[in-house]
Simulated assay, not measured.
Amino acid sequence: MRVAIAGAGAVGRSIARELIENGHQVLLIDKSPSSIRPERVPNAEWLLADSCELSSLAEAQLGKCDVVIAATGDDKANLVTSLLAKTEFGVPRTVGRVNHPNNEWLFTEAWGVDVNVSTPRIMSALVEEAVSIGDLVRLFTFRQGNANLVEITLSPDSPFVGTPAGLVPFPENCALVTILRDGQVYTPEAEQPLESGDELLFVVPAEVETELEQLLSPGHHPG
């Protein structure tokens, strides 16, 4: 997979290193000469250019990229880069970094952003996930599917402790994708009983999140 990353700062370089380790081709783009440091990610391609300019993206051959990641420290630049990548070069997948939480609402398909990554939101979600038992915590939003990745830690008083996963009447279009238990990752099986303290990860539409949370809460009585 070929990936272009706009922004060769600490965030962009870290992403590049991980992608390269996973066998992908990476191009780092930055308009600041001081940021062009090939020795820091020697296996990446480097381009001194402004990702907000159409000519620069054409020079980068963005049309040959499978993914474009707009990872600069400037939200306006990330939006413009994503929009140009999607509308002018038809890049299949765009990821936009949100630096300021007040701008998160802009990072949508209307601006060419398939997935937005908001560091403040992720950090707050991780804090909530660490301290919340029985409460639904939204971890990630899938823009194209109008669905969210959510987590619920099963309370000891949940009515479904000890119930096989296949017998729990989860809401329609709600998918249990992973059970985290005792430091292990389990693929849910219909006959596998749920246990107190299980971290349950679901992909679920936003409109049924409340129903899911109420279903697994201690106050729910199975019909």
Score class of each variant (00 low, 15 high):
Leu176Met: 02
Ala206Trp: 04
Ala165Val: 15
His220Arg: 11
Ala85Met: 07
Thr87Lys: 15
Val185His: 10
Val131Tyr: 13
Met1Ala: 13
Gln61Asn: 13
Lys76Phe: 03
Val117Asp: 03
Arg97Lys: 14
Cys174Leu: 03
Val185Thr: 13
Ile20Ala: 07
Glu39Cys: 02
Asp30Thr: 06
Ala125His: 04
Ala8Phe: 09
Arg93Tyr: 11
Arg2Tyr: 12
Trp46Leu: 02
Thr163Leu: 05
Gly197Val: 07
Gln144Ser: 12
Glu18Cys: 01
Ala49Ser: 10
Ala4Arg: 04
Thr108Trp: 04
Ala85Glu: 09
Asp50Ile: 10
Gly12Tyr: 09
Thr210Lys: 14
Val26Phe: 09
Ala110Phe: 08
Val117Lys: 03
Leu79Tyr: 04
Glu104His: 06
Leu194Asp: 04
Arg13Trp: 01
Gly145Lys: 12
Val177Ala: 11
Leu19Phe: 08
Ile20Met: 09
Asn102Glu: 14
Trp111Ala: 12
Val177Leu: 15
Gly134Ser: 13
Val95Asp: 01
Ser32Gln: 14
Ser82Asn: 06
Ile69His: 03
Lys64Thr: 12
Ser132Trp: 03
Ile152Gly: 01
Asp114Pro: 02
Met123Cys: 01
Val67Asp: 01
Val68Ala: 13
Thr178Lys: 06
Tyr186Gln: 14
Asp66Ile: 01
Pro156Ala: 05
Asp157Arg: 15
Ala70Lys: 10
Pro188Gly: 05
Pro156Arg: 11
Asn103Cys: 05
Val203Cys: 02
Lys76Thr: 12
His24Phe: 02
Pro218Gln: 13
Phe160Thr: 06
Val127Gly: 01
Tyr186Glu: 15
Phe142Ser: 02
Ala175Gln: 10
Ser51Tyr: 04
Pro218Ile: 12
Ala85Asn: 10
Pro92Asn: 05
Glu195His: 14
Pro92Asp: 07
Glu189Arg: 15
Asn78Phe: 09
Ala71Gly: 11
Asp182Thr: 06
Pro169Val: 07
Gly223Lys: 08
Thr119Leu: 14
Ala58Leu: 11
Glu151Asp: 04
Leu48Arg: 07
Phe160Cys: 04
Gly9Tyr: 08
Cys174Lys: 02
Leu27Phe: 07
Ile152Lys: 05
Val131Asn: 04
Gly145Leu: 13
Leu215Gln: 06
Val98Cys: 10
Ser82Ile: 08
Glu172Ala: 12
Ser34Asn: 12
Glu88Leu: 06
Thr119Lys: 04
Pro222Gly: 03
Asn116Trp: 11
Ala10Leu: 09
Glu53Val: 05
Ile15Gln: 01
Ala175Glu: 05
Asp198Leu: 10
Gly73Phe: 11
Ala77Gln: 09
